[in-house]
Write a protein that binds this DNA or RNA. Sequence first.
RNA 1: GCGGAAGUGGCGGAAUUGGCAGACGCGCCAGCCUUAGGAGCUGGUGGCCGAAAGGCCGUAGGGGUUCGAGUCCCUUCUUCCGCACCA
Length: 832
Amino acid sequence: MAEYEPQRIEAKWQRVWEEKGVFRAIDGDSGRPKYYVLEMLPYPSGTLHMGHMRNYTIGDAVARYKRMCGYNVLHPMGWDAFGLPAENAAIKAGIHPREWTNTNIREFRRVLRRFGFSYDWQREISTCEPEYYRWNQWFFLRMLEMGIAFRKKSKVNWCPECATVLANEQVIDGFCWRHETTRVEMKELEQWFLRITQYSDELLADMAQLRNGWPERVLLMQENWIGKSRGARVNFSVDGTRLGIEVFTTRIDTIYGASALVIAAGHAKMNDLLEGVRGRAAMDAQIKSMLQRSTKAADIATAEKEGFFTGCFAVNPFSGEKVPVWVGNFVLAEYGTGAVMCVPAHDQRDYEFAKKYDLAIKVVVQPVAGQPLRAERMNQAYTDYGNLVDSGRYSQLSSEQAIEKMAADAESAGFGHAETTYRLKDWGVSRQRYWGTPIPVVHCAKDGIVPVPDEQLPVRLPENVSITGLGQSPLASVPAWLNTTCPKCGGPARRETDTMDTFVDSSWYFYRYTDPHNSSAAFDKGKVAYWFQIDQYVGGITHAILHLLYSRFFCKVMRDLKLVGHDEPIARLFTQGMVQKGGVAMSKSRGNVVGAIDMADKYGCDTGRLYTLFAAPPEKDLEWSEQGIEGSARFLNRVFRLVDKYGARLKNVSLEVGGSSDGSPTVKEKLLVRRLHQTLKRVTEDFDTRWHFNTSIALIMELVNELMAQEPLDRDISPAALKGVFEGLVLMLSPMAPHIAEELWAMLGNSDGIYTQKWPRYSAELAREEQIEIPVQINGKVRARIMVEAGLSEDKLKQQAMNDPHLASLVAGKQIVKVVVVPNKLVNIVVR
RNA sequence: GCGGAAGUGGCGGAAUUGGCAGACGCGCCAGCCUUAGGAGCUGGUGGCCGAAAGGCCGUAGGGGUUCGAGUCCCUUCUUCCGCACCA
C-alpha cells in the first residue's frame, strides 16, 4: 500500500512538466483560441505567504482549466524589481540594491516553482534589468514628443522619510503610503509629469467597455478618483480694485443667494487682495495657521468651519450686489479655482459657515412640491434642484434651465463660462532616488533639456553609487555618470538625476510578456495583437486606482502611438480577497504571516492550494485556519488511499472516460456514473461562470463520499465503469491540486500525463436521475415526500401527489383551493 | 457626509432562475479499531417541546408582495471597504 507523500510527488511532476515544456505559450498559434491570464506581478521583498499564494492559485487553476479546454494559454510571471525597499536595504545593510533584489527574486522564484504554478518561465521579466527599463525610457521619450511628458515647477508631496516626491495617489490621508506615521510635506520643485489628465474624459468614457468584466466597485473608485464635475466659472470683481476672483460652482442657479465669497488660505491672489488692508498682520497669522493645519483628510472633513472677513467686498456679476470676501478653512486651494461663492440656503457647508459667522441666509430655490422654504425656519441647507425665486430675470426658471441659461449669459457677458473640472491631477513621476529607471534627458547650458536619442538607450544606472538616503538624488553624486555631452551641440551637459516612479514599470509590463526578449522594440505589434487584450487579470483590490488607472492611461498612449489596436488592456479583472490571520491581512510587519514554504513542507502545496480555494469564494477575505487546512489534507489523503486501493485492479483496463460499461449496468454503476456526470456538470459551470472553487471542491468531496459509501468497489461494478469514475474525478481535481492529480492519473495506468488531457465533457443523458424525490407542501409547509419518475408532467405529478395515501389523509376534510405544481421541483397544495 | 459591499448554526461557508434553509468542511459528541494516536472508520450535531412519531420556531430587526421569500419591495439597525469640506 502506497502512501501519499506530497513533497516527493510534487517534485517529480514539476520535473516532468519542466522537461516537456507543457506550459509554454505559442505565439500566434492559429489552431487554438488564445487565452491570456495574468496575476499581478509581485514586488520581490519579504517572504511569500499564503496571501500571495491565493492570488497565484486562482490564476493557476484558471490557466490549467483553460489549457484543458483547448486554449493556447499565456500565463507568465515576472518581478516588479525597482523600488524603495531595495534602496533602504542598501542604506541599512550596505548591500547593493541589485544584489538585494536579485537575492529576493531567486527566493520568490524558488517558492513559486515549489508550488508548481503553470507559468511559462521562458517569458519571465524583471523590471530592473536594462533590457526592460530601456523601454520605459523609450516610452518616456515618445511621451516627451507628444507633449504628454512635461516638466513644471510645482508644489509636490514630499516624504521626508523616503526623501523623495510622491504621487497624489501615494499620499494617504496626508501621510506617506509607505510610512503611516510620516506626514507628507509640500515642497516646490521642478518635476517631471505625465499628462494623464489629457485622457480624463476617455478614461471615464471607456469604463463602458469594462462594465461587464471589471468589478463594479473598482470602476466606481476610478470614477470618483477622476472626479469629473460639470459647472461654471464666474468672475467676481473685487470692489475698488482691478482684481477679479473666479469661483467654480456646480450650482450657478443659486448665485443670487450668495452672501459671501470664500477663498482658500492658499489662494494665489491672497497677497494682492490683502495689499494695504487694515489688520493685515493678524490675517497673515491666521492664514499661516490654516495652511499648517491641512493634514489628515478625515480630520479636515469633520473639523469646525473657520474663517475671517478680509475687509474686502466683491461684486456679484449677476445681481450687482456687494458681498464680503472671507477666507475659509473649508475651501481647497487645489480644487476648482480655490474660491467659492457662499450660498448658505443651498449648500450645507455654506450653511454651517453662515450660522457661525452670522452671514445672511437667502432662499433662491424653492422645492417643486411641498411647503415653501423660509430662511428663518431652516435648520439645514436645501440642496436639491427646484424653481428659482428672487433671482432677477431668472426667477421661475427650473434649476436645470437656469444652470444652462446663466452659464451662457455669463459667457456672452464675458464674466464666466461653463466648465468641467476634474479631481484627477497629472501624474508626477520624478523620484529623487537611485533604484529606478533613469529619466532619459540631459540638461545642457546651451540647449536646455535635450532628450537622449533612441540609439543611446538604455541610459544605464551606474552600479557604483553610495546610497545614504540623505539629500539629493544619489545619481547626482556620480560625476562619471552625471557629466556627459549634449546630444544636440556636443557641449558639456549633465544627466537628469531623477528616476521614474516604479508605477511606470508596471503600467505596461504585461505587453512585454508577449515578446520578452525583443531587443529592437518594446514588443512586436503582431504579437501584442495576437495576445491582447488580457482575458483575465487577477489581483488585489489595493491597486484599484494606482496601477489599474496608470495601466489604462499607458494603453491609450500606446494606442495613439499606433503600437496597439485596443483602447483598454484588460478585458476582465478579478479582485480576490485577502488572506487574514487574526482578522487582519497577512503582512510581515504585523508578524502574522503563514509562510508558503512552511505550508508546502508541512502539507504539500496541493493541500495549501486546495485549502485556499475551498475555505471561501475567491472574492471574499479568508481567515486562515490551521484546522481548516488539516481538513483539506485529510481529503487528499482519502482520495489517494481510495485510488491506491483499487488502482492496481484498474491499471490495465481500457475505457472511454466516464463511459458506461457494455450490457446492462448494475445499480451501483448507474449511481456512480450518474454522480460523476452531475458533479462534472456543476464543476464545469463553476469554472466557466462563477469561479466558486469552494463549491466545486465541495461537490468533488461529495463524489468521493459517495464512492466510499458504495464500497466495496470491486463488487457489483465493472472495472471499466469504476475507472471511468475515478478518472473523471482526478481530471476535475487537476486544476486545483495538479500534482496529486498527475500521480493518481498515473496510478490508474495512464502513461501520458494529465497535461495531455482534455477537460472531460459531461453527458446530460448520464447525469439524469431516473427517480426523484418531490417534496409536497400543504400551505407552503413540507408535509411529505414522494418518489416519482423524473420528468413527469405537471398533471401526472399532481395526480401522484393527490393519490398518496399519507397526503390524502392530511388533506381529508379540507377544501382544496389550489394546487401549485412545479415539475421536477415540488407540489404545493393550498387548503382552507 | 457621499458611494459601495455585506449580515445565514459554535466556526468557514452552501442554497446558481422566487421552490426541501444549513450542502461541503472545521469543531464538538458517541462508538469502532489500535500497544498508542494530533492516524483511520461509523453514526450524530440550528433552537425549543416530545420517550418516539412528530410538532413549533428559525437566514440582523420590523413591515409588504406571493400558493411559496435567505432570495423581490419598503424600512430600521450593524459591520466592513472606498472617497471625503470636490464647491
